[in-house]
């Protein structure tokens, strides 16, 4: 068996999701090749070579891959991937964007958001916003999977796999990059943080999210939000945790002023410890919270910050 993993990166450094996909791949078993496609991304390939379990790194360094446009990356991956038994990427917006395109080009199905590997052809994935868990078996000649990073540990580093450059550019010529507007944050990334503190509609406005800052600083936490808070314009949408936002599974998840709709729970119910702070004792979030505090968040948050 030969496994091809497409690395997630920003042309400067590798994202931690890649380590988790490698960990998932080791459960399948077989030679693991990591593909780094980007522009001026030698440093990423060098970093990728240190992940334990990786046998080889392929580096496709070309301007056409700079913004990882699905049309171009999919052409490259579909061509390389024909020789592999498995093709994996993280279930991030990047992986979800190009990998189904690859699968269709190879005329095989894709299994999305895999949370467990049972064998080389049998995988487990959540459906219906995580309210049901499906075990599926694929008879396709190439298994194409996106892997949910929150469901796997990160593979350790300490390896030195060979890096091989591949030449040639695949430009589909139908799409161009215009601009990018990234949210700047000093905090850990939501999907990788050990502690996440999220605010919901109960925060009442965007300014009140500042109440979470001090606590997040003390705990080294990332700040998230419910869809209600995002739709109300309190915070940008890349902070959204849920079925349609990010899926997180930190050691500690603190939900503040969040009622706990099914769609939100889908994004955080695999957290190790869940704390809910809500003034409504009947809020559904309390049904899954390990520790619940029925109180007004505006009096509790400053107190909590002080006691940490």
């Amino acid at each position: 068996m030969a496994i091809l993993i497409i690395a997630e990166h920003n042309n400067q450094s590798l994202k931690s999701e890649t380590h988790k996909v490698v960990q998932a791949a080791t459960a399948i078993g077989g030679e693991i090749t990591l593909l780094v496609a980007g522009a001026n991304c030698q440093a990423v390939a060098d970093e990728a070579a240190t992940i334990a379990g990786v046998n080889k790194v392929l580096l496709a360094d070309n301007a056409v891959y700079q913004h990882q446009l699905a049309e171009n990356v999919a052409k490259l991956v579909a061509e390389l991937g024909a020789d592999y038994s498995h093709i994996l990427a993280a279930a991030t917006t990047t992986g979800k964007n190009f990998l189904p395109r690859v699968a269709a080009m190879l005329d095989v199905a894709q299994i999305s958001d895999v949370i467990a590997i049972e064998s080389a052809d049998t995988f487990v994935r959540p459906i219906y916003a995580g309210n049901a868990i499906a075990t599926v078996q694929s008879a396709d000649r190439i298994k194409v999977l996106t892997v949910r990073p929150a469901a796997f540990r990160a593979a350790p580093t300490g390896n030195s796999a060979p890096v091989e450059a591949i030449t040639g550019a695949h430009d589909a010529g139908v799409s161009t990059f215009i601009s990018e507007e990234l949210t700047k944050s000093e905090r850990p990334e939501l999907t990788a943080a050990r502690v996440v503190i999220s605010g919901g509609r109960g925060m009442q406005n965007g300014e009140n999210f500042a109440l979470l800052n001090g606590i997040a600083d003390k705990l080294g936490a990332a700040i998230g939000a419910s869809r209600a808070a995002v739709d109300a314009g309190f915070v940008p949408n890349d902070m959204q945790v849920g079925q349609t936002g990010k899926i997180v599974a930190p050691e500690l998840y603190i939900a503040v002023g969040i009622s706990g709709a099914i769609q939100h729970l889908a994004g955080m119910k695999d957290s190790k410890v869940i704390v809910a702070i809500n003034k409504d004792a009947e809020a559904p979030i309390f049904q899954i919270a390990d520790y619940g505090l029925v109180a007004d968040l505006f009096s509790v948050l400053p107190e909590l910050e002080q006691q940490l």
Binding site: N10, T94, S175, F177, S179, E180, T191, D238, K246
Partner: peptide, 14 residues
């Protein structure tokens, strides 16, 4: 304009 993990990205398609 696409919602991506770190923010927003704009692309033009033929």
């Amino acid at each position: 304009t696409r919602e991506i993990d770190g923010g927003l990205q704009t692309v033009a398609l033929t």
